[in-house]
Design a protein around this nucleic acid. Structure first.
Lengths: 208, 208, 208, 208
DNA sequence: CTATAAGCGAGACGGTACGTCGCGTCTTAAT
DNA sequence: ATTAAGACGCGACGTACCGTCTCGCTTATAG
């Protein structure tokens, strides 16, 4: 009697790992060249040197494919340690803004979020592979500031609500500035935004 | 020789005004039933009891049609006078959140913004018919607060930049909360958000 | 009150008659070049300078299209008047054989009949547009022979059964010789076949 | 150094003989259930409990497979000895008709013949495994009739042509009746057909 | 009162992309 | 070497929308 760790011995030809990478890269290329709405599955397949069926064997459709293709870009984001909370925030916001300015992100991000309003599994996929990654930065920043003594202990509210609030404010403001107002997220704007945010946080802390 | 003061007296059968209204209403219905991505021009035409050619005579495509159909909903937004800046902000944010929760808005708004990242005329159309309408509320709120003495005179910064900042923060945070985080924008959240914002504004004013 | 002959006033753009002709001609071309099994709807559409949808708007599929494309070739068949029943039969059989030797007919005819064994509407379509056309020649030939006194009056059997029998024998033998045995239907074979057939008919007439 | 009389002693795992039988049976089942055009190699493999590669190792494609699957059915045909040529013919024609009425034969026979018009190897395969088997019955019947004195000696014509003619007439007429005219090949029809044929043969013999 | 012009519903048209299916080949591990 | 399993590149399928184009008809203004 043998013990099997995997549910069943894998049988048949395994899926090509190269194909996965080629497809995701081709998807990002196509986003740059064509934008979300003109991107087609057939074109991505051609660019990746792969058959259309291979795409559909791995992803349910354009939405899922694009989420995965864009998600890896968010791995680049990390919280720099610049010595103060305000400098840390400014650093990460500029990174986030740079990401949003990239043509593949700019055209894809709002589109998949728009689709996700009517597609719960897609919404969950976005949350898991993109939103959580960003939210983690907020937690990390708050903890580091608490270690420095810049912020009082605790998460600042019931049910971790302040972290969520901060996250929506930061991500929302930057996205709105970049994509809706279509104005540059430069360091001048980021400094004024950070000052506003930290001022608000300090006032809220004082009030308690 | 004829004198024509108007660009030209239109000759031929005039366009039906009823058709316009019916088409926009049908578009909103279709958005509710189908969502942005499944909405088709042919279906809108059928719902409106109109030929497809009639749609294309008036709008260049789906994007433009949907922007117009959704824009009128933003007429409902107005700044209530509740006696204090914080109460005014809470009121208008709740209105805005209610609008975002409507299925036609929820599915359409981010989608057309996403499209607009690669379509300058569309971006301008959205700015003129939706964004400006919202931004006006910020100006109005700031002036009213200044009349009350809650805020110092001036627009609070160089090149009117603070109004823009405030606008991106408010609109961005609410949209992000509602559509990305997919959490309810209820009055508890709005109060905490408003407190944060006003705290930040006060700190910024004190700093100058 | 007006009387309308057509069920309803035709409304909308009428179907292009040129397209019909171009499609049927393209289908015959494709049969010659590719044969039945390699013929594709897309290729026919391209050859005809027409969209694939235009094909599907008029025909349910490849089978129906090919039947119509081939059927017109059977219009060429006619019973020559060569003065005697045997000469008439030899003439029409040679015509039929020549038709079966044409590449478009050779590859298509058995294929659609094979399909028709599991598709009653297709079988009816073939019967109406091809089989009846051929059967008519048998009737015509029998009547002409009766006028000449070469055959006794009557159709030679109950329920017109002899006409049917003769038809199956002639058409079946020629098709089998040409397509299954794949031997030439030349005038030597036709003379021997006709002699056999007329001998059999005479014997049958004598027996009654 | 080894001596090898056979082409080569096969090395490695030998092919499964059971698989061959299972595949041919599965092919006939699939023909009954789906018909020629909807039969697929993958489905046959599944029905046979066999991998697709096993099919392709033995047959070049669908055509060859189906010919082999149907060919064995023709082994059932044999010339009964009913004491007279006419009775023998009637017997064998009824057998042949019964075979053509079977769903697997009905849907497959004309289809592979149609394919064979553009595929010489396939045509040869059909000739060898199906057509010759039938033609043999004609020879056998003619010889038996000659032994009985019902027919004069010789094959009745130059280059054995009469056997071929008789074969095309019998097989062609029955196939046409069954598949094109789609009328039953019952004993009444067979008697009239046989009378016609034998009358023709007698006339031809008298003429010489 | 007629001519001209534009709007309109209907629906056919040339296209493009879709997502699926079957083909025949290949790569695994197991026999 | 053969087998079952199943991924792969390929090509055709039949459908859905796109945005444009005829049609016959209606509804205006201009002469």
């Amino acid at each position: 009697m043998c013990s099997r760790t995997s549910p069943r011995t894998r049988v048949g030809r395994p899926r090509s790992a190269e194909a996965d990478a080629a497809i995701l890269a081709a998807t990002r290329d196509a986003l740059v060249d064509l934008g979300w709405s003109k991107l087609t599955m057939g074109d991505v397949a051609t660019r990746a040197g792969v058959a259309k069926t291979t795409l559909y064997r791995r992803w349910a459709g354009k939405n899922e494919l694009v989420v995965d293709a864009v998600a890896v870009l968010f791995d680049e984001l990390e919280l720099p340690d610049r010595g103060s909370l305000s400098a840390d925030i400014e650093g990460v916001v500029l990174q986030f803004a740079a990401l949003l300015e990239r043509p593949e992100t700019k055209t894809a991000l709002m589109a998949v979020v728009a689709e996700s309003t009517r597609d719960a599994p897609l919404r969950e996929r976005i949350r898991a592979s993109i939103v959580e990654r960003q939210k983690h930065l907020v937690l990390q920043g708050r903890r580091r500031a608490q270690e420095r003594g810049e912020l009082p202990d605790g998460d600042g509210g019931p049910a971790g609500g302040t972290d969520d609030l901060i996250f929506d404010v930061i991500a929302g403001a930057v996205v709105h500035r970049a994509l809706v107002s279509a104005e540059p997220v430069d360091s001048a704007w980021v400094q004024r935004f950070t000052a506003l945010l930290l001022g608000g946080l300090a006032a809220a802390a004082a009030q308690d």
